[in-house]
Design a protein around this nucleic acid. Structure first.
Lengths: 170, 170
DNA sequence: ATCGTATAGTTGCATGTGCAACTACATGTG
DNA sequence: CACATGTAGTTGCACATGCAACTATACGAT
């Protein structure tokens, strides 16, 4: 009967990991449906735009942006292509390493973010403030940051281009 | 008072949300690369399989599985199609509601999970035990569960019918 | 009973994404 | 300097996913 001989199926850690995926996916969908109503760009596009907007200096290397957006270099190339066609982002060749490129918001991109961010921030605040106390939110952010940094460290071997954590706002 | 046009860009909550996406994406990639080495199914497939394996009774309605796997009904249909072709999952028509279907692991599916789970669990334990104390992990799980439940409650797929600019009062 | 509406799931089509191969530049070694 | 090796980013191709439209079943009203 008990064709499942592994009690490990009940392990709480598997639940935690499953919850991480579910919460991220669910939140993404939630943002997606709201965004759909306001005619704003897609969630993936918005994720890229907001990371550019939140970066001090306003520009990011393609590879860094790819990491932050959880995309492969190829996926990011295409995503930035689309944003460039829309006039929201522009590429700038890195002068010190001519292989590399920076992505930065155009004036139109900044405008769009300025127009979209209040709604988005309001929704985020509504959710987090309802679910968590400030301390709980800080603990959550800390825990997630540890997971992210672990993944960064163990994924593409050398990902240290970002210098310190604090340089990456998200 | 600064010249920054949108001070809201510095909001910590945006960072938290960004971390949620990054940590989930990073972890998914991490699992993906390890899984690639062991010749096991894709991460998306594995996510579906593990959720089936961990469900008491061993079967889930397609719609429930779609929600858990962060997929649309259409996406899940295709995913289960692939797993069915591989002989890992089978469909069973729900006797009480003939519109619905259950998905359940086949014997081969159970075998595969029994073979794959130890490695996966070991990796998960390695990560979580290194990053968190048991208390911290429980807090993290609790926080994520709240986010997931919030998203579940507010998504309902028909909520988009609100059409208003702000959030859905639903 | 019959109709109209709602729900579960599946398919056509378009798009986004990843992997592998490729180009362009950089860096180390003789 | 020439060459080999490594890195940043882009493209071809294949696949997975979402949206909208559709089928089949259930449920409620008259």
């Amino acid at each position: 009967m008990s064709s499942v001989p592994s009690p490990s199926l009940d392990d709480e850690r598997l639940t935690t990991v499953g919850l991480l995926f579910e919460s991220a996916g669910g939140l993404r969908r939630l943002f997606s449906t709201q965004r759909e109503a306001s005619g704003s760009p897609t969630v993936q596009s918005f994720d890229i735009l907001i990371r550019l907007a939140r970066t001090p200096g306003g520009e990011l290397r393609m590879s860094d942006l790819a990491t932050q957006a959880s995309l492969t270099p190829s996926g990011l190339t295409r995503a930035v292509d689309r944003l460039e066609v829309q006039g929201l982002v522009s590429r700038r060749t890195c002068p010190e390493d001519r292989r590399g490129s920076f992505a930065e918001l155009t004036p139109a991109g900044h405008e769009l973010m300025a127009a979209s961010l209040p709604d988005h921030l309001a929704q985020v605040e509504l959710i987090l403030d309802e679910l968590f106390t400030p301390e709980e939110e800080a603990q959550l952010a800390s825990a997630l940051r540890r997971i992210r940094d672990y993944a960064l460290e163990h994924n593409t071997s050398s990902a240290g281009a970002c210098g310190a954590d604090d340089e990456c706002p998200a």
